Amino acid sequence: VGLIGSKLIEQIIQNAARIKDSLGIELIINGLSNSRKMLISADALDPGNYAPLLESSKTPANINQLIEKMVDYNFTHSIFIDNTASAEVPRFYERILDNNISISTPNKVAMSSEFNQFIGLKSLSKKRGVPFKYETNVAAGLPVISTLENLINSGDQISKIEAVLSGSVSYIFNTFSANGPDFSEVVKEAQTLGFTEPDPREDLSGADVRRKILILAREAGSEVESTDIEIHSILNDACLNAQSVEDFYVELGKDNQRFRSSVTSAEKENKRLRFIASFEGGKGVISLKAVPVNHPFYALSGSDNMIVLHSNRYNRTPLVVRGPGAGADVTAAGVLAEIIGIAGLI
């Protein structure tokens, strides 16, 4: 129960009565865990009182024991929610699914790992007849993976994916201009506003974007690994190798002129800089590009994400999904939507 988890509980409280009245679905919480403690009960937990209940728990957090309890209780229609970014929790997905427990998660570690794990979890979900949902892996609450699934299931073929998949980097380049503050100052502002990770290199390196475009490429039917996605880094080696965030900003400041030249050149041609991930012909590329006024990415604003899907059916005019692609509220809303969807399936 971190930031996304707490927002999810808030939304469950706010919507529980409506969901029960309109859909006939009663959402019951039987277990909770944070990084320190966990609480699991055969009786329903009070979501409005979860924080003190969890804090007063004497049981240390242990994912293995949590799963054992879930299996022992054998609740019908159980759903396991992983709201972490942990690499440890996804190691237990196979065991959870194998015990007929559904999963909903924004954690992208499992589905961006080796392709064998990606296809293995999907196959196990199908074999056991238990939903495994991860819509929020790519763009928070935006319906991207489900849109791809619908296209593929209905016989369409994806020829190309283009996407702006980082809300933080999107904000930075929507804010940065030829006549505005230096690039390093715009990055600092984005960090202060909470758009970036505490170390902005986690966003600017392109590693997270690679995980997202990898998942989309796989959903589109390509058997690809992360090595098939090439990153043309925004940052120079001195920035990437800086020993601390403070040192990173020193090195980034030394590189301000390069960024200023790039944005000035783009604006002279009436173009805008965008950090774009694309996938076509079995290969992916992530790079900073200057896009013209008639390009879908030109009009992006704030921290919006945009995914552009080219397919056999959408060949003249591509299918576009746009909206907030980051934030605890929209991510939690996406998870809640999956919970409701899973409840309708089981």
Results as ranks from 00 to 15, higher is better:
Lys188Glu: 08
Glu162Leu: 05
Val164Gly: 03
Ile339Val: 14
Phe275Ser: 02
Gly2Ser: 10
Glu114Arg: 10
Gly48Asn: 11
Ala333Asp: 08
Gln11Ile: 10
Arg316Cys: 12
Val330Ala: 07
Glu149Cys: 13
Thr317Asp: 15
Leu54Cys: 06
Leu165Asn: 01
Leu193His: 11
Lys254Ala: 13
Leu300Lys: 03
Glu225Ser: 12
Asn64Lys: 12
Ile234Pro: 01
Leu39Asp: 03
Ala61Tyr: 01
Gly334Ala: 07
Arg128Leu: 08
Ser6Glu: 04
Lys7Cys: 01
Thr76His: 11
Leu300Met: 07
Glu225Met: 07
Arg18Thr: 05
Val245Ser: 04
Leu336Ile: 15
Thr175Gly: 02
Ser311Arg: 04
Ser35Pro: 11
Asn312Thr: 15
Gly221Leu: 07
Phe259Glu: 04
Glu135His: 10
Asn116Asp: 08
Ser146Tyr: 12
Pro324His: 09
Asp237Cys: 05
Lys108Gly: 13
Leu214Ile: 10
Val224Pro: 05
Ser146Glu: 13
Phe115Met: 04
Val71Ala: 06
Ile152His: 01
Leu66Lys: 05
Ala85Cys: 14
Glu189Leu: 05
Asn270Ser: 15
Pro292Phe: 12
Ser184Ile: 07
Met111Lys: 01
Val164Tyr: 02
Ile81Trp: 01
Ile161Met: 00
Asn270Cys: 12
Gly253Asp: 12
Glu162Ser: 08
Leu273Met: 07
Gly167Gln: 03
Leu27Thr: 04
Ile19Gln: 09
Ser226Ala: 11
Glu162Lys: 07
Tyr134Val: 10
Leu204Glu: 00
Gly167Lys: 01
Gln243Leu: 09
Val109Glu: 15
Lys254Glu: 12
Arg260Ala: 11
Ala16Glu: 07
Ala163Ser: 08
Arg258Asp: 11
Asn256Ser: 13
Thr147Leu: 02
Glu280Asp: 11
Asn62Pro: 09
Thr147Glu: 02
Asp46Asn: 15
Met70Ala: 14
Asn83Glu: 02
Phe183Met: 06
Glu225Gly: 13
Asp199Tyr: 02
Leu142Tyr: 04
Val144Gly: 00
Ile40Tyr: 00
Asn153Gly: 11
Phe173Pro: 03
Gln243Met: 11
Ser226Asn: 05
Asn100Ala: 14
Leu309Ala: 08
Glu55Val: 09
Ser166Leu: 07
Ala328Lys: 00
Ile13Pro: 02
Ile307Trp: 03
Lys126Pro: 00
Lys133Gly: 10
Gly129Thr: 12
Ile276Phe: 00
Leu336Thr: 10
Ser35Lys: 13
Leu27Asp: 06
Ser226Pro: 06
Glu246Asp: 09
His310Pro: 02
Ser177Arg: 01
Pro47Gln: 05
Ser184Cys: 13
Glu197His: 05
Ile4Met: 04
Ser170Val: 09
Asn64Met: 14
Val71Glu: 08
Glu280Gln: 12
Gly281Ala: 06
Ser154Val: 09
Arg260Asn: 14
Leu240Asn: 11
Lys271His: 12
